[in-house]
Structure formats: C-alpha cells, structure tokens
Design a protein around this nucleic acid. Structure first.
Length: 829
DNA sequence: GACCTGCTGCGGACTG
C-alpha cells in the first residue's frame, strides 16, 4: 500500500477527508466501510464481521481516525488502542496504521507494545503512551498494573479488538473483558469495536465485547466474501483405500501433482508430528524442491518460523507444511493453493484455512481436502454443505473464571488500586462476571489479601494490602513477580533442541526426550537428528547419518469433530441410506458405504446405531453418537460403569470422533430397547461420570493451570522457567493440601468444572443422552467388523504389543473384511 | 526395516 497524502490537515469533515484519501489511492469504499466510519464518528460501538481480506481493517482503522480529525486537538496521550491476539501481527498493523495517519496529516505516533518490545521502549511507554498503540490482551493488562494507569488512558477514544473470534471463547477473552470494563468505567463514551471472522454466534460475540447493560451495538457485515471452493481429493483406487488411519500419506502422489501445478501452497496438517512426516515424505519424493519447502509448527524455533513467514511473503516457497500455526497471521499474497490433510474437524476452521489463499485481486480461494481414510471423504462433502447452508460453529464465552478474576484484581491492586464496591460494579459489567455474587467476590478479596484459611500463614500469598478501604500492592517485589505472571496461556515446560554448535531448532516435550538415549535418532524440524546429551532443559543434537528415526510425540490438545460438521455427516448418511449419492466425494466411496449398509446400517440424526460383534478377542459393543472424541470418552466410561453394575466384567475402551467401542470377555446380556434407553438415561449423569472416571486425578492436573493463572504458583522467569516437574509438584502439593484442609476452596471447584466442561464436554455428552431418548435405536449383530467399527478396532490396537506388525494386522483385517463383504448381515433381535 | 496423533497463543525490569 503506497499511500498518497491528501491535501492538507483540516479541521473539517473527517469523513470527507477519508473519502478523498481513499480516492487518492484509487480505491472506492465499500458500503460497509462507509457504514463503519459513520458509526465510529457517531461514537457508537459494535462488531464488524467478514471473511479475511475484505477490508475490515481499513474500515475499523479509519473510523477512529476520522473521529479524531474532527475533535479539537489535545496534547498527547493515547487516543486509539488496537488489540491483536498475535504479537506477530502487531508491527505489520502498526505500520499500515502509521502510514494512513501520516497521509491524512494527523500528527500521531503509532507504536506497538508486546513481549517483543525492548526494555527501553517499554520504559518510555510506561511514562507516556503514543497516540495509537497496537498491543496484545496480556500487554494491555500489564499496562493496567502500573500506578499511573488512570493517567495513561485518560484520553482514550476508541478500542478495536482484531480477530475477536480468537479470544471470545477462552480465558484470554475473559481477561480482555475485564480490562475493557476497567477502561469503560473511566471513559463512559469509549467506543469499542470488534473485528471477527464468520461465527455461529455473532450477536453473542458482540454483546460479550460490549459488556452487560451497554447500549445496543451495531453489527456490520463486511463485503460479500469471494467464493471459496472446497474440493476433495478422491483416491484413484477406492478398493485399496484405508478405512482407518490419520496420516494420509497414501494420497501423496495426488498431492504432489497438485503442488506441482501451483506457485505457492500451504499444506495444513492436524498435528505437529504429521507435519514432520509429510514434510519428509514430500522431500523424499521431490528432491528438486528441497530449497522450496518449509516446515512450520508451534514447536519450531520462533526465529526459524519468522524466516519462513518472510519467505512466504516473498514467494520463495512452493509449499510450507504447517499446523494451525499459520491459521492466522499476516497475509501471504503469493499463496495460491491450500491443502488440508485429514479431517477438517470443523467448518469455521476449514474456511479460515481456505481463506489463506487467493489474496491477489480477483483471485478466488480454493482448498483441496485430502482424506486420510475412507469416511473422511464424507466429512469433506459435509463441510462444504454446512458452509453453503451457513452452519458455522459458535464460540461460547466462559463464565466465572475465578483464576482470571483474582489475577485481574491483583493487577489492579499493583496498579492504581481499587475500592471493592466500585470494582464489583465494574466486574459485573462484563459478560464473564455478570453473575458474580458478593460472597464469591469477598472470597476473592480474602484470597488475594490473606491467601484463605489454609494458606494465610505463608507470606507469599498475602499479596494485596488494604489501606483506607483501598486495595493495593505495596511490595515492589510482589508487583514485579505478578507482572511476569500476567496472562492466561499455560503450557508445559519444554526441552530446547539445539545443535552442539549452538543453533536452536525448537522445543520438544520432556517426556519424549526422556525416553531417548544418546545416539537415538528422531525427526524434528524437518531433519533426522541424533541425540548427543541432555543438560539443563536443553537437548543437544547433531545431524544423523542414518535415516532411521522415530517421530516426537507431543501431548497437545485434541480437537473433537464439531457438532455442526458431525450433523452434516449424519445428514449425508441419511441420504445414502435412502440410496442417494449427491456429492462426488461420497459417491467415490460408495462401495464402503454400501458395505456398511449391507452388513449393518448407517446412523442418522434420529437413528442411533449400536453394533455387537464377537471375535477372538471377546465381545465388542460399538455405538456411534457422532459427538466427538471427548464426549465419547466420557460416554464410554459411563457405559462401562453402568454395565458393570448389571454384569461383572472389565472393559477395554476405544473412542474416535464417530463413536466408541467397549470390549469385554463376558457376553453382553440380551437387551431390549427399554434396557438400552435405561443404559443411556441422562439421569444422574454427573454422579455416574464422576464415579466412572478418575475425575480426581484429572482435576488435580487441571488445577496446575488454575494455580498458575491465579498466582498460587510462580512459574519462574521467562526462558529460565521452572521445570515442568517442579511446577507439577508444587501445584500438586497445593491441590492435596487444599483438598484436605479446605475442600470448599473455590479454585478446586473450578478445576473440577473445567475438567467436565472442557476435557469431557459434559454438555455435549448430556445432549447425546437426552437426544437418545427420542432416537430410533438400530441394533445390529455383526459377523465381521463394519467399516464404522473397523477404525475403532484399529485405534485400540495401536497401543498393543504384538509380534505381528501393525500394518500386517490391518491388512489382514482388510482382506478378511473384503472376503466377507458379500455376506448377509444378521439383525438383532 | 519396523512403524508412526493429538493445535494455537502471551508475559518484566532490576542492578550496576
């Protein structure tokens, strides 16, 4: 963007000035951009939503600028605050904004402030902020922790939250809500705007941003996004296409052809190890591309990642293999192809990725979806249908995250301090704490001043003091330590991976390195590396001479299939059950689906499929609620526990995104429809799930994160972090102590709640059971594993030790399945 | 040669 300056500084109509400036660039404002500018100028608040690359940024930026142009000049001080969830985005955004401001003749400094900002700039900003600041939610919180915070934000006119959808559903969003409430309480006319991608709950997204009791905001839909094409890569030979698996490497040739035709591609995988393997496979197959290939994921050294991002912008790459690490970020205009390997998992997620291509004017976006097993072809058709029907996932905002609340209260106390009555009113003006009652709030006050009944003998928990009714932090050491711990992102300590000569490659789980001995070889950062030694949380490596290697395992998050996508898959199954094949991808695996129909049945939105089968291993029960793997984990445990009440047996469990398997050596009792409904009864769900699972241990682990965010444990200085084990030990000790002497501790209750809601998706599990009450149960006795059952069987085999190789076992099963494909199914009863 | 699961994101300033 080579911005040409407009005529001169003028105190006239700011809107007209912007129109002139826009025209000088040779641009015509879109109607939604004009609408946004007018809304800004009128001092309103709201949400602008659109897909990427539609000019949201200019709409949001020029609004406050136009407003500023019309107000009498004030000397200095922060006028506009721009919040971004990604510090890599900050400098780019600031650059564009500075350019626009300069050419409009406004004498403003636009600066960034993130963790990357140097100490000297931070110190200067601490004394006085620029007119416009681009920052992260965490850095904003840090700014509130300084004594002069009220002065710093005195002249603030507008806040813009970029990528609000990324923050809405997590604790970073809660933290931002709290900061915004504080700003609003001091500047009632503050105008707050969010920018968001397409989302299933846009109205809610806006009201959460604007706060409880705010005047209704203005929702502005961005320009119609360019069409996005979703294409599935259909396997050439469906007969030999795997029924299970997740790597998708059997489709390598098709992907290579696709990459060969284009200029620059992003190839998304669902996991980091999958990215490593695909990167290796592509290089092996196309040695001539070696300089044009990149690898990018969250464990790769930050500097290396920045270099790759820069190379993408320059058009240096034919293909970069990546994970969600490139879901967001600066626009990479040269990208003309996007490939998704494996399950898309959700509609919004896939569209976000598709939107990473086609930023050139007039270019459309296309995404090639590469299935890693047969049923994923249905997912591809399903995601396209859901998108076309406008069914996109919602992101649900969190409520009453007490760990974030106590952190915020200490932040305010370290900063200007707070008075309880006023603070409570402010907190209640957020969506997250609208229901905060006085008892709970008082508990928080006791917690930050005395540490509560058990911890009050330890001075490190007495962080805040009360003077004349005002809560403040007086100890500068406590304040400093608190600033270090600001933020809600928690992650395990990782082992750094470095060459003997010093170059850093990235980081890996401690548990993976612990299993290796010197001389072992593993694949990381696209290279086969030999472990030399481990010292002080650093693994020293050298390039390996051998090609044999293992691949690191990371214990990251496990994204379940979204409800929207699962529903869409079931809708397609219903059509197939009725003999209709409307999508190319679905038609491509008709033989597999027909086999499922013939041997068993296809589940539907109102048909719950339950299969039984007896094998050498024992008696199998398969159920397919299509509720995502997290809910299935809880359901499997629940069913095993309830069955255990009526039959003496132990079960092996296996789950995936489609369903679950229970295996036992005892015959399952004959069960009527009524028996099944009793087994699936939602009543006493919570009690039974807690009885079935080792919920205490799960909560104990969850508590570690809560202890960090709430300031109960100090995780050390950045870069010199306490090791994971130390942190685990101290938070574990705290957990046990509290559990014993203060079992009503509110943070313990929160740990349990988070386990149920986030790790087991208890709401989704509940709705499976409630839905089952009205569903038709389709009970089938199988002679051989059906195509739906097979992946669950494979899943369980993974951790088995056997003299027989995994591939042989799978192949043998495939062969026997094919042999029996023509057999008649047996119905039950 | 086997055989390969599990995403992303942030953060400070003292002392000499």
């Amino acid at each position: 963007m080579a911005a040409k300056p407009v005529a001169a500084k003028s105190a006239g109509d700011g809107l007209a000035l912007i129109e002139t400036w826009f025209a000088a660039q040779g641009w015509t404002p879109a109607p939604f951009q004009r609408q946004a500018w007018q809304a800004f100028r009128a001092g309103r608040s709201g949400l602008i939503h659109a897909s990427t690359g539609s000019g949201k940024t200019l709409a949001a930026w020029l609004g406050p600028v136009s407003a500023a142009l019309e107000k009498p000049a004030r000397t200095g001080g922060l006028r506009v605050l721009w919040i971004t969830p990604l510090r890599a985005l900050a400098s780019d955004t600031a650059g564009h904004l500075q350019q626009a401001v300069d050419s409009l003749g406004l004498d403003w400094a636009v600066e960034t402030r993130t963790g990357d900002t140097t100490a000297s700039v931070r110190a200067r900003q601490r004394r006085k902020l620029p007119e416009a600041l681009v920052t992260t939610p965490e850095s904003l919180s840090v700014l509130l922790s300084y004594r002069n915070a009220e002065e710093s934000f005195r002249h603030l006119d507008a806040v813009v939250v970029d990528e609000w959808h990324e923050l809405l559903g997590n604790k970073r969003g809660v933290q931002l809500q709290l900061c915004l409430a504080w700003l609003r309480a001091r500047q009632p006319k503050l105008s707050v705007w969010g920018l968001s991608a397409t989302l299933g709950n846009l109205d809610e997204a806006m009201s959460v941003l604007l706060g409880e009791g705010a005047a209704p905001g203005e929702r502005i839909a961005g320009a119609q996004s360019k069409p996005i094409t979703i294409r599935g890569l259909c396997p050439a030979n469906v007969e030999r296409f795997p029924w299970a698996g997740h790597l998708g490497l059997s489709q390598l040739e098709g992907v290579l052809d696709y990459l060969g035709e284009g200029k620059t591609a992003l190839l998304f995988t669902n996991t980091r190890s999958q990215a490593e393997l695909w990167f290796e496979a592509i290089i092996k197959a196309r040695l001539e591309w070696v300089t044009e290939l990149g690898l990018h994921h969250g464990s790769i050294d930050r500097k290396v990642r920045r270099r790759i991002e820069e190379g993408l912008r320059q058009g240096d790459f034919r293909c970069v293999v990546c994970t969600s690490s490139l879901d967001l970020g600066v626009d990479f205009s040269p990208v003309d192809r996007v490939v998704q390997i494996g399950s898309p998992k959700g509609v919004a997620r896939l569209m976000q990725r598709a939107g990473r291509s086609g930023h050139q004017p007039g270019a459309a976006s296309e995404i090639l979806c590469v299935p890693s097993h047969a049923l994923e072809l249905v997912e591809i058709a399903a995601v396209r249908r859901a998108w076309e029907a406008g069914r996109v996932e919602a992101r649900r905002p969190l409520r009453l995250s007490l760990d974030v609340l106590v952190q915020h209260l200490v932040t305010l106390a370290a900063g200007p301090g707070f008075v309880p009555e006023q603070a409570l009113a402010e907190l209640r003006s957020t969506h997250a704490f609208a229901e905060l009652d006085e008892t709970l709030f008082n508990w928080c006050l006791v917690f930050i001043t005395r540490g509560g009944p058990v911890l009050e003998h330890y001075p490190q928990f007495q962080r805040v003091v009360v003077q004349d009714g005002r809560y403040t932090v007086e100890d500068t050491g406590i304040a400093r330590r608190h600033r270090l711990a600001i933020g809600t992102i928690t992650s395990d300590a990782q082992i750094q991976v470095r060459f003997m000569k010093g170059g850093s490659l990235g980081s890996i789980e401690e548990t993976f390195i612990a299993r290796l001995k010197p001389g072992d070889v593993f694949l990381f950062s696209g290279r086969a590396l030999e472990l030399v030694k481990v010292r002080d949380l650093v693994a020293y490596v050298r390039l390996a001479k051998t090609k044999r290697h293992s691949v690191p395992r990371w214990y990251g998050g496990r994204l379940p299939l979204s409800s929207e996508l699962a529903d869409s898959v079931l809708a397609i199954f219903e059509e197939v059950q009725a003999g209709q094949y409307k999508d190319a991808e679905v038609a491509a695996i008709a033989p597999v689906l027909e086999l499922q129909k013939q041997q068993s049945a296809l589940p539907g939105r109102n048909r719950l499929l339950i299969e039984r089968c007896t094998s050498r291993e024992g008696h199998h029960l398969f159920i397919y609620p299509f509720a995502g793997r997290l809910a299935h984990e809880g359901l499997a445990a629940l069913l095993a526990w309830r069955l255990g009440q009526i039959m003496p047996a132990t079960f092996s469990l296996s789950v995936n995104d489609y369903g679950l398997e229970l295996l036992t050596s005892t015959t399952f009792p004959e069960m009527t429809d009524a028996d099944w409904h009793a087994l699936l009864d939602p009543e006493d769900l919570l009690d039974h799930v807690l009885a079935a699972l080792n919920a205490g241990e799960l909560a104990r682990r969850q508590f570690r994160d809560i202890a960090r965010v709430s300031g109960l444990v100090f995780q050390g200085f950045p870069g010199r972090g306490k090791s994971d084990r130390q942190l685990q030990a101290s938070s574990g000790l705290l957990y046990d102590t509290l559990k014993r002497y203060d079992p009503e501790h509110r943070l313990l209750a929160q740990a349990s709640r988070e386990v149920l809601e986030d790790q087991l998706e208890i709401q989704r599990l509940r709705s499976v059971l409630e839905h089952a009450a009205g569903q038709q149960l389709v009970l089938v006795s199988l002679e051989r594993f059906s195509p739906l059952a097979f992946p669950l069987w494979v899943e369980r085999q993974r951790n088995r030790i056997s003299t027989e190789g995994w591939r042989e076992r799978v192949q043998r099963m495939m062969d026997s399945l094919e042999k029996h494909a023509a057999r008649k199914p047996g119905r039950h009863p």
